[in-house]
Amino acid sequence: GYRKEQERLGIPYDPIQWSTDQVLHWVVWVMKEFSMTDIDLTTLNISGRELCSLNQEDFFQRVPRGEILWSHLELLRKY
């Protein structure tokens, strides 16, 4: 899972600490993992702090059909 990727690349476990690059890395990883092609990366060119401050409605406004990303983010925030 993504935890291995975080360990390998030194990405903080807590998404709130992610840099913009780390947010984009996570988005690309999830897209590959779940064979998603319809995500516009430019809408998530934000820091982890900004990402974690979005509520579900705001998130889906930025990322239509972003349910998998949202669920994955929720999982990461719990651990």
Score class of each variant (00 low, 15 high):
1 G>S: 08
1 G>C: 08
1 G>W: 04
1 G>V: 07
1 G>R: 15
3 R>G: 07
3 R>E: 14
3 R>M: 08
4 K>D: 09
4 K>T: 11
4 K>R: 13
4 K>H: 14
5 E>D: 05
5 E>G: 03
5 E>Y: 08
6 Q>Y: 03
6 Q>D: 03
7 E>A: 11
7 E>Y: 05
7 E>L: 07
7 E>D: 15
7 E>P: 01
8 R>M: 08
9 L>A: 10
9 L>W: 13
10 G>Q: 14
10 G>M: 10
10 G>P: 00
10 G>S: 10
11 I>H: 03
11 I>A: 03
12 P>T: 03
12 P>H: 02
12 P>Y: 03
12 P>W: 00
13 Y>P: 11
13 Y>W: 12
13 Y>A: 10
13 Y>N: 14
13 Y>Q: 12
13 Y>H: 09
14 D>W: 03
14 D>Y: 03
14 D>C: 04
14 D>G: 02
14 D>A: 05
14 D>H: 08
15 P>F: 03
15 P>G: 01
15 P>N: 03
15 P>W: 00
15 P>A: 03
16 I>G: 05
16 I>F: 13
16 I>V: 13
16 I>N: 10
17 Q>Y: 13
17 Q>F: 06
17 Q>D: 15
17 Q>K: 08
18 W>C: 01
18 W>T: 00
18 W>Q: 00
19 S>M: 01
19 S>L: 01
19 S>W: 01
19 S>F: 01
19 S>G: 05
19 S>N: 11
20 T>F: 03
20 T>G: 11
20 T>W: 04
20 T>P: 13
20 T>R: 13
20 T>A: 15
20 T>N: 15
21 D>N: 12
21 D>A: 12
22 Q>I: 01
22 Q>W: 00
23 V>A: 03
23 V>F: 01
23 V>S: 01
23 V>P: 01
23 V>G: 00
24 L>S: 09
24 L>F: 09
24 L>W: 07
24 L>P: 00
24 L>Y: 06
24 L>R: 13
25 H>N: 12
25 H>Q: 05
25 H>W: 04
25 H>S: 06
26 W>E: 00
26 W>P: 00
26 W>V: 00
26 W>H: 02
27 V>D: 02
27 V>G: 12
27 V>M: 09
27 V>W: 02
27 V>H: 02
27 V>E: 01
28 V>Q: 15
28 V>S: 12
28 V>Y: 12
28 V>P: 01
29 W>S: 04
29 W>R: 01
29 W>I: 00
29 W>K: 02
30 V>I: 10
30 V>C: 14
30 V>H: 08
30 V>G: 12
31 M>S: 09
32 K>D: 15
32 K>L: 04
33 E>T: 10
33 E>P: 06
33 E>D: 15
33 E>A: 08
34 F>D: 07
35 S>Y: 07
35 S>G: 15
36 M>T: 12
36 M>G: 07
36 M>C: 15
37 T>G: 14
37 T>D: 06
37 T>P: 14
37 T>M: 13
37 T>A: 13
37 T>Y: 09
37 T>L: 10
37 T>Q: 14
38 D>W: 08
38 D>I: 03
38 D>V: 05
38 D>R: 08
38 D>E: 15
39 I>P: 07
39 I>D: 05
40 D>T: 06
40 D>A: 06
40 D>M: 03
40 D>R: 05
41 L>I: 14
41 L>Y: 13
41 L>C: 11
41 L>N: 06
41 L>A: 12
42 T>C: 12
42 T>P: 09
42 T>H: 11
42 T>N: 10
43 T>M: 12
43 T>V: 11
43 T>L: 14
43 T>I: 07
43 T>W: 09
43 T>Y: 14
44 L>D: 00
44 L>A: 03
45 N>P: 04
45 N>K: 15
45 N>F: 05
45 N>T: 14
46 I>C: 08
47 S>P: 12
47 S>W: 02
47 S>E: 11
47 S>C: 12
48 G>T: 02
48 G>D: 02
48 G>N: 03
48 G>Q: 00
48 G>V: 01
49 R>I: 07
49 R>H: 08
49 R>F: 09
50 E>V: 12
50 E>D: 12
50 E>T: 09
51 L>N: 01
51 L>D: 02
52 C>A: 06
52 C>N: 04
52 C>L: 10
52 C>S: 05
52 C>K: 01
53 S>C: 11
53 S>F: 06
53 S>L: 09
54 L>T: 03
54 L>H: 04
54 L>C: 04
54 L>W: 13
54 L>I: 08
54 L>F: 12
55 N>T: 13
55 N>Q: 09
55 N>A: 11
55 N>Y: 06
55 N>E: 12
56 Q>K: 14
56 Q>R: 14
57 E>R: 10
57 E>T: 11
58 D>F: 06
58 D>H: 08
58 D>L: 10
59 F>R: 03
59 F>K: 02
59 F>L: 04
59 F>T: 00
60 F>R: 14
60 F>Q: 11
61 Q>I: 07
61 Q>L: 14
62 R>K: 13
62 R>P: 00
62 R>H: 07
62 R>F: 07
62 R>L: 14
63 V>A: 11
63 V>I: 10
63 V>N: 04
63 V>E: 03
63 V>H: 01
64 P>N: 07
64 P>I: 03
65 R>E: 15
65 R>F: 07
65 R>Y: 12
65 R>N: 11
65 R>D: 15
66 G>C: 05
66 G>T: 02
66 G>P: 13
67 E>W: 08
67 E>K: 15
67 E>D: 08
67 E>P: 06
67 E>A: 13
67 E>C: 07
67 E>L: 06
67 E>F: 06
68 I>M: 10
68 I>S: 10
68 I>A: 15
68 I>E: 12
68 I>C: 11
69 L>G: 00
69 L>W: 04
70 W>S: 01
70 W>K: 01
70 W>Y: 11
70 W>F: 07
71 S>V: 09
71 S>D: 15
71 S>N: 09
71 S>T: 15
72 H>A: 06
72 H>D: 07
73 L>N: 00
73 L>W: 07
73 L>P: 03
74 E>G: 11
74 E>N: 06
75 L>Q: 10
75 L>D: 13
75 L>P: 07
76 L>R: 03
76 L>Q: 04
76 L>H: 05
76 L>V: 07
76 L>P: 03
76 L>S: 03
76 L>C: 09
76 L>M: 10
77 R>S: 05
77 R>Y: 04
77 R>G: 04
78 K>E: 12
78 K>H: 13
78 K>P: 07
78 K>S: 12
78 K>M: 11
79 Y>E: 14
